[in-house]
Every structure is written in C-alpha cells, then in structure tokens.
Design a binder for these strands. Structure first.
Ligand SMILES: [Mn+2]
Ligand SMILES: [Mn+2]
Ligand SMILES: [Mn+2]
Ligand SMILES: [Mn+2]
Lengths: 216, 216
DNA sequence: AAATAAGTTTAGGCAAACCTAAAAAATATA
DNA sequence: TATATTTTTTAGGTTTGCCTAAACTTATTT
C-alpha cells in the first residue's frame, strides 16, 4: 500500500458520505488537488486490487476491504493528532499537516503502543472519533450550529472545517470543544447568528455556523 | 529533499569515515541494497544540487551542505529511536526499522518538541550521540572490546552492529549499556575472548567483540 | 608493457504517479 | 428529439528512482 493509494482511499471514505451512489473523478480530483485523468488511472488500479467498486462514468465507492484500510489510516491520523496536541506542544490548528505525514508510517506495534501511551483516546483534538483496531467508529449524533433555532443551546463537540484559518478563528473567539453555545438571534437575510458563549455575545456568519458541530 | 536523497546522504555520511578519499559506488550500492548504476545516477543528481563532491571513478564525499542534511536526518532518527524506547514499549532491537521511516517526517516544530519532550537526550538507546540542531556531534573516544588486552576493563557505551539479531544476542547475554566488561582471556587461534560481566564469565566471538564499544 | 580483472559509467527500459490534450460518453437544453 | 455542454476516459508525455547489459576506465597481474 503506497502513500498515494492510502490517500485515495481516505479521500473516497470522506466523500462517499455525500455521494452514496459513487464519488465522481472530478470531485475526487478537486479534493486531492489533482486532475480527473490522474484519478481515473488510480481508481482503476485500486479496483484491480479489490479495494473499491468502480464502474466507468458512474464513480467509485469503497468496498469492505477498502473501507477497512481507510479506517486504519484515519485511526493512525487521529492518534497522531492526539499525540501532537496532548504530549507535544501543538495547538489544534497545527496538528493536521504533520499527521498527514505520520499516518503513513507502517508499524502495527507503533500504533498499538501509541494508543496505550495516550490512554486509549476515543476522540481526536478536533472532536472526531478514533476508529478502533477493527475499524469500528463511534457514531455521535451531532448538529451544525446553523441547524439550531433561537433559544436552543448546544455543547460544541466538533468542527467540519479543520483548516488552520478556521481553527485559529475559533481560538480568537474562544470557542473550544465543550463550550456551551446558545442561539440568541438568527439574521434572516444572510443566515448569520448571534450566539452566547461564556456570557459573551458574538456574531457568527453562516459559513461559521455550518462548520461548528454541537450536541444538544 | 526526497526520502531516497536523504537515505543516500545518510549512507555516505556513515561510509565516508572508512573511505576518506571517496565512497565507491559499489560500496554505497551494497550498503543501500541497490546497484552501482543506480548509485551513479543519484550521486550525479546530489552533485548538481550541491550536496556532495563527486568525481567520476573517484567516489563521492559529502560537502558541508550535504553533511548538515545528513546530520539532521541522523538527529531525527536517533530522537525517534529514543522516543520509541523510552516512551513506548519498544526494545532496542525493535526501534531501528520504525525510525528509518520516522526520520523522513518533515516538521521543524515536531523535532524541536520531541527533543524537549524527551528531556534533550544526548545519546540514543544504542549509545550513539544525537547531533544538535546545528549538526554538532559529541565525539566520545571509545574502543572495540576486541582492542582490549586481558586484564583490562571497560564500560559498554555502544554497539557497531545494530541489527535485531545482534542486539537480541546481547540481551540474552545480559550485556547492556553501562555494563562493566573485563577481559579474562584471549584465545589466540580465533581471537575469541573470555570476558567477565556481572561476575559471570562468558565467551565472545571475534565478530561479537568487534561490535561492542567500551570506554576505559 | 601488455593482458586480464575489477570497478564505474552509459544506454536503454520499467513502474508509479503525475500531467495535458483529444476522444468518447453522459447530461442538460433548446 | 436533436444539439450543445459537461464529465469522464484514453492517449501520449514527464519525472523519479530503480533495473540490466554493454561500454569504458582503472587497477592488478603476468
Ligand atoms: Mn486531521
Ligand atoms: Mn488528515
Ligand atoms: Mn538506528
Ligand atoms: Mn537508521
């Protein structure tokens, strides 16, 4: 399994939730910052290796094998992110890029020991669940802040956008995992929201409210 | 800097101590488990990049640039080995192969934080010095056990061969860093040695005594 | 010094993972 | 339904890092 193959499987895993009938080469190429022609080639290889279901012009989906491989890479990614944030002095906006490299290290013992060293964490620093060795993922029902109505209150349990810039924005507004968010007002014309956090009121754009997850 | 380029520089660094006039393509190829023709190609590339001194048919040596890059990779390798042995439950014969992968991760912050997390170690679990950020290496004068004469005593400070099989052999004989070794007898015909460690006497082959370093 | 042996480089190929441009298929629109 | 647009695949290249076989250079023998 090459780095590139692992990245393709991981990307298909993420994208197939929104494209249950098949992830298109264009979407995959965008996500991977490459070109549709390159994607077609790789997908055919993964299909021959028995990791994906591919039908020309119909997109691609992971099969059981491919999903397990993807989940193992995601497990490694999230364990490494946890390591960087908990044991080394990384903030949550700095961990993703390094974890993108570390997730490809091959050593069963390493990932087992890392898991133990971290105290068998269930979630990474962005609030995402860490799959277990068998590829089981805890499914938490969560809502986007944008789906709440004025008066409702939720606890921040995750983010959708994990880019540095968004995470740094959240840091500036002092929004972190576990923060309690109350919807004060929904601005009708642009769907922006006034919310209360720690007694402070602040205004969040629609883009922002769609990228913050809460549980009720 | 690709993984492959880093491995070449690291290999040249190790080999040029024994070949100060130039490391031959054959020697390098053997060390890297590849072929002389492949080595010639890569060396030419490294020469064009200004990392080595290469004269056709005369072998290759690192220049200042190349040596610094090599030392940074070695620094990462030894810090990761220390991490695996000290923080995770790896024994000294299990760490090298994983460190061969981890040494290629690119992140200045990561290596800085890892160093701090480990308490700024000066030596790795095999007794090898860890270069500092500027590429300075502590030079310790050490001798092979084979160079001692009967009656002399030394403290084990390192090994030459870091293969699993040799390290496991040392574990079996309870020879570890810090162990005090006294030469009891030198067998003339095969240069094997009877040594005393922890009050026990045992026989070491010449291969073994040449691969254990002690300081007096 | 000439012949032989050993070591090194060059030439030509291959696989992985990209790319652009052209051809083909699917989808949308008139 | 026929035509235009968009999406996808195919064809043909490129780069990196490897390989084998042949040519060449250097070192060692006789
Ligand atoms: Mn991440
Ligand atoms: Mn990631
Ligand atoms: Mn090592
Ligand atoms: Mn190493």
């Amino acid at each position: 399994m090459t780095f590139s193959e692992e990245n393709y499987l991981k990307s298909i895993y993420s994208l197939q939730k929104d494209s249950p009938k098949g992830v298109s080469t264009t979407i995959l190429a965008q996500y991977l910052e490459s070109k549709p022609a390159s994607v077609t080639e790789m997908i055919k290889k993964l299909d021959e290796k028995g990791l994906v279901l591919y039908q020309p012009y119909q997109g691609v989906l992971l099969n059981k094998n491919g999903e397990l491989v993807a989940l193992k890479v995601i497990r490694k990614h999230r364990l490494w992110e946890t390591f960087l944030a908990k044991k080394l002095d990384f903030s949550w906006d700095e961990i993703h890029d390094v974890a993108e490299q570390l997730e490809h290290i091959k050593s069963d013992k390493l990932i087992k020991e890392l898991d133990r060293f971290l105290g068998f964490p269930t979630h990474d620093p962005h609030g995402d669940p860490i799959p277990d060795e068998q590829g089981n993922v805890i499914k938490v029902e969560k809502k986007q802040v944008s789906q709440l109505i004025p008066g409702e209150t939720g606890t921040c349990v995750g983010v959708n956008d994990t880019s540095s810039s968004f995470l740094q924005f959240l840091d500036q507004q002092n929004i972190k995992l576990g923060a309690v968010i109350e919807i004060v007002h929904l601005q009708d014309f642009d769907k922006s929201m006034t919310v209360r956090i720690d007694g402070r009121e602040l205004l969040l754009s629609q883009i922002a409210t769609e990228n913050i997850y809460v549980k009720l």
